[in-house]
Amino acid sequence: MGGFSATIYRIAIASIGVGLAVMIISFLIMIGFQETVTNKIYNFSAHMIVTKYTSNDTFEEAPLSLNNDLYQNYASYDFIDHVQEYSHKAGLIKTENEVLGIIFKGVSTRFDTVRFEPSLVEGRFINFDDPSYSKEVLLSKEIANKLNLKLNEDVIVHFFQNPPRVRRLKIVGIYETNLSEYYDNKFIIGDIRLIQRLNNWADSVAGGMEIFVKDTRNMDEAEARVLRLMNYDMAVQKVSDKYIQVFDWLHLISRQVNIFLTIILLVVCVNMISIILILIMERTQMIGLLKAFGSTNRMVRRIFSYHGIGIIARGLLLGNVLGLGLCLIQYFFKIIPLNPKDYYMSFVPIGWNWEIVVFLNVLTLVVVALIILIPTLAISRVEPIKSIRFD
């Protein structure tokens, strides 16, 4: 095949290939965004939170007893992966030149450091070996930069209560989630036993429980099951409801990508219709000869359909090589940066989901293969005598 037909052939392959590549890249980036943001939120705040009902609208919670079956024997519940306690207490950090209000989040040895580790950018996690309470804390990178504090320096924390209490604590780690308005500009992390002593609580009391579930796809069912295990004065809240603005934003991204997918498929289909019509017009004499020798419209249409499917197959190959190749480059080398204050991450993320890749390939193949049947209907209108003399 040469000349004009070869050019049309290459345009058709490129059209399908670029369309599929854009769809693959868009979906893998979308999945990367969703996974990165949700993992950061869940790793910091778990999937669900259990607290006592209170009319107090501050970060500090009413005391909750940990002598309950969910906390003590969470492994016996098949849908729960982990349970850990926490407490919050408001305060401020004071340096020689700056004062900054913060929320002290107290955690214990139960805190899932494996999930939190990706957010730990410098230093280490708290050591709980002190029999009284650990005097070590983690600061966010944002707070450390605002107050010009460094790793292994001491920091003075003033806690709001009557009378006010002051503690000198040592910075042993710096974390960064890039979720500034929710975590980084507010929270420092320390030993929950410090809050228990400041509040005159027993060791078996905390501000609440954070629950990780095994299957996040059934969060509503898990919430209902946890609620049935709690006393009437307990409140169960999904973290996705607590930070609903972020999850609504992620849902909006998903909807936009689906609209984008529809537009790309529409463009590819229109291109393929045009290309098949051009090929039919260029092969009008051949169609007339085939009909003159006894070929039926169905047989001739099948020839062009098979030819179109061959074009689609080569386009899919090009699209996969191009789309997956660019995603691999971004995944390993992170060449496209982002503003973390706007996007909650410092580079464009790639989330690998081979089911989506296969689905996009099958969808493109099926839709475009069905669409190319439309222009082949023009073959039935070709008359052998006129087409043989067609120039």
Score class of each variant (00 low, 15 high):
N178Q: 14
H307L: 08
E223N: 09
V166D: 02
L100F: 12
R298L: 05
L151R: 05
S140L: 04
C327G: 03
A378R: 12
L92G: 05
R228H: 15
L318A: 12
T51V: 09
H47D: 00
N361S: 11
F390C: 04
D342R: 13
K105E: 15
I80Q: 01
I275K: 04
I276R: 02
I379L: 00
V114Y: 15
G3F: 09
V357F: 01
I259C: 10
L266G: 09
N320S: 08
I379K: 01
N39G: 08
G315D: 03
I156G: 05
G173Q: 04
M30Y: 05
D130Q: 11
D191S: 13
C327A: 12
S65T: 12
I156L: 15
P118M: 04
S204F: 15
Y86R: 14
N148W: 05
F4S: 14
H47L: 03
S140F: 02
I287M: 02
N43Q: 14
V137A: 00
Q245D: 15
N127G: 13
D112H: 07
L317H: 05
G315E: 05
K334P: 07
L250M: 09
R255E: 15
D220A: 08
D129A: 10
A6P: 07
V270P: 04
R389V: 13
R124N: 10
F332S: 14
M48H: 06
L373I: 07
L326C: 12
T51M: 03
M286F: 11
G101P: 10
L326A: 11
D191K: 12
L252D: 13
H88L: 08
M230R: 02
L261D: 04
D57E: 15
I189P: 07
W201S: 01
T36I: 13
I350Y: 05
G123H: 06
N145L: 07
L266C: 12
T113C: 09
L328G: 14
V246P: 03
D215R: 11
I156D: 14
I80W: 05
L20M: 03
G208E: 04
R167L: 02
T284E: 04
G310Y: 03
I244W: 11
S134A: 10
L70E: 00
I273C: 06
L360K: 01
L92P: 03
F44D: 00
D81L: 11
V367A: 02
S55K: 13
E85C: 05
L290P: 01
N218I: 06
I356G: 05
I335H: 09
S26Y: 03
I80D: 01
I8C: 02
I263E: 07
I385M: 12
F59P: 00
V22T: 12
Q237Y: 09
R10A: 10
G294Y: 06
L147K: 09
Y175C: 04
H158Y: 15
I171W: 00
V300G: 00
N339F: 06
W249N: 04
I276T: 05
F159Y: 15
V172T: 10
F116I: 01
R168N: 13
Q245S: 14
K238I: 07
V107T: 10
V382D: 01
E60Q: 15
Q196Y: 00
I188C: 01
